[in-house]
Amino acid sequence: MVTVRRFRPEDLNKLAKCNLDPFTETYELGFYLQYYAKWPSLFQVAEDQHGNIIGYIMGKLESSPDVYRFSPHYLPWHAHITAVTVAPEARRMGIGRLLTEQLEAAADAADAWFVDLFVRTTNHKAIAFYKSMGYSVYRVVKDYYGDHSADPSRSSEDAYDMRKPMKRDVKREHIREDGEKHEVDPSVVCLAANTFRLAIDICEYTLIDMWLDVIYGTLDITDLLHLTCTEQHFL
């Protein structure tokens, strides 16, 4: 039996059922707490009768920095699904859907234009799931992932940037019907989506160090992006 509620830090001691699953990434403490500090209502968990966390979703609300306001890749105020995962024993019960709906409700409450997420183009189950929930492909981010889930000989994989419009987007201005035809470079997502800040949060780099590493070639921009990959293991 499941209880769905807001995350609290003590839950970090009960993540084993989700995070020991090989497809679920475990982050540094600061990463979880950053989400809990900034967007507590977008961090929801599903708990079983023994207090184990059997699913969770982490999301954030953000927009591109003002400096990109006139860029075609500018992202207005929106919610982003950073990670959603469900323990193997709790899959196929609709927990992923429920958690996503809760995040969408929080996004609506925060007057977001849309909710977006990144998913591997080969993750057909997840794509179908999101489509069934009203998400559609907005664009294809080339070489977003630094590895390939199906082909170990390949060093990268594309991502779909999928979106679902929220109540605020009455005219459906922030979605596309032919998103699969719009390909962008990962740096576009990075610059426009304020991803650097998140990457810094993960890596504990300083902003200047990050820039220098990218400029001097010691850090690949795609490597930087991989740190921010959305996780989706709930089907």
């Binding site: 970090l12 001691n13 009960k14 993540l15 084993a16 020991l20 475990t26 982050y27 540094e28 403490l29």
Partner: peptide, 8 residues
């Protein structure tokens, strides 16, 4: 690894 180590 990381955060779950304290508990596991």
């Amino acid at each position: 690894k990381r955060t779950i180590q304290d508990a596991l």
